[in-house]
Write a protein that binds this DNA or RNA. Structure first.
Lengths: 145, 145
DNA sequence: TTGCGTGCAAAGGTTTTGCATGGCA
DNA sequence: TGCCATGCAAAACCTTTGCACGCAA
């Protein structure tokens, strides 16, 4: 494994901790920056991006693209157990509320095998996100009928 | 239907024609601009974006986000038959060569039904893309073994 | 003639890079 | 003390917007 971090700094540890505590959320670089500043650790945006870049290379966080503007967001996925776990299932993202959900289902896990065998395409499960509308938002959208 | 186009211009028709002729590709705004310029129709980037925006609103093209940088690309999907067709199946995108493939398969089409029934999530098939590596690129990556 | 569509340039937002400084080991 | 990490500012990108002009109807 690459021991890319040689020094431990306040910014680095605070950033990682914040990501870990919000592992269920998608965080933009700006959100991370503001949050750390708010808890007493001012951090430059350049540092945020540099750290996120490193963490992504190490497999500790994952980068996603927002579907509206040309921005990105990141999510903590751990580097061992959780990463391996998330590598075995798909993710659902609600285009209304933006929530990201894990989709554990054997029935769906065989999709990758099927596509590889029948369609000659090796799906990267960890990078594939199903977009749609979650049950909660669907109810709000169509209160009647 | 909104009759948003009142005038017919060279740029507009050429842009649409080019998109239609490359309906199997993902095109960036820059690619469209360069291609039209190359075939004798110089067009400003602002116009490209404005036209693509209108076409997207009309459902004639679809906008995707690139997974590397923070850029976008567009694909012609027609406004009737083809749109309906692509709405019924998933797409595969090779992260190596960037090619987009249509995935016609009854086995996969039931995925949306399954997720809706079992996981209370309404997948928007037209916005969901499977990322992975196509057979051709997989061979190139691993010539041995 | 009317007013939509265009082009240029400037602005906007996000992300990256250069360079000097600061802080961990 | 050595060297990585940080911060600031500038640059780089993609995209949007303002404004005047051109052209289709």
């Amino acid at each position: 494994m690459a021991r890319s971090s040689a020094y431990q700094t306040k910014q680095k540890s605070q950033l990682l901790q914040f990501l870990e505590e919000n592992a269920d959320r998608h965080l933009t670089a700006a959100e991370v920056q503001i949050a750390l500043a708010g808890q007493g650790t001012p951090i430059g945006s350049a540092t945020v991006y540099r750290q996120l870049e490193k963490l992504e290379a190490q497999g500790i966080v994952r980068r996603y693209l927002l579907d509206d503007r040309g921005g990105s967001c990141w999510q903590y996925i751990g580097n061992a157990e959780q990463a391996a776990h998330c590598r075995t299932h798909f993710h659902l993202k609600c285009t209304v509320c933006g929530q990201l959900m894990h989709l554990d289902c054997d029935h769906l896990n065989e999709i990758a095998d099927h596509v590889a065998a029948e369609h000659n395409f090796r799906i990267d499960v960890s990078r594939t996100i199903f977009y749609g509308v979650c049950g909660t938002c669907a109810e709000k959208e169509e209160p009647k009928s």
